[in-house]
């Protein structure tokens, strides 16, 4: 300890500050993550809104496509009589949702760290 010089101490302090900054940065990045949650035929699927993509699902009435793009999700295509689900358009925030009853599919926007009082899946 005796031969520590000025700059040594300065570097150590900078290092500690750096570590603390990094800790706060990682903690803050955690909240605010939104997901498109699809419930189809009893199974639940999660897709982060931050990643674009499209996924196929099948139900009694036919084929469906759920699409995620630009932080929003929608039912892009569905083989069902009324197409109510498709007409809901782009969903962006919780608790937005839409459903295709003939195909037994529900599309919901959920946020991380949400815990509901109902039975739906909770995202940590």
């Amino acid at each position: 300890m005796k031969d520590l010089r000025i700059l040594d101490i300065l570097i150590i302090i900078v290092g500690i500050v750096f570590v603390i900054l990094t800790a706060t940065w990682t903690l803050s990045g955690r909240e605010g993550q939104a997901f498109a949650e699809v419930t189809s035929l009893g199974e639940v699927y999660l897709y982060p809104l931050s990643q674009d993509g499209s996924w196929e699902f099948y139900g009694p009435s036919g084929r469906m496509v759920v699409e995620v793009k630009d932080e929003a999700a929608r039912v892009a295509y569905s083989e069902c009589p009324e197409h109510i689900c498709e007409s809901a358009g782009w969903l962006t925030q919780p608790p937005a949702w839409t459903a295709c009853l003939p195909n037994r599919l529900i599309l919901r926007i959920v946020a991380a760290q949400e815990s509901e009082d109902d039975v739906d899946a909770t995202v940590f």
């Binding site: 031969d3 520590l4 010089r5 000025i6 700059l7 040594d8 101490i9 300065l10 570097i11 150590i12 290092g15 750096f18």
Partner: peptide, 15 residues
């Protein structure tokens, strides 16, 4: 230069 010893150099490098 002389304001820093191997302690500081090593710490900076490790970081």
């Amino acid at each position: 230069k002389s304001w820093v010893s191997l302690v500081g150099i090593s710490t900076a490098g490790a970081l």
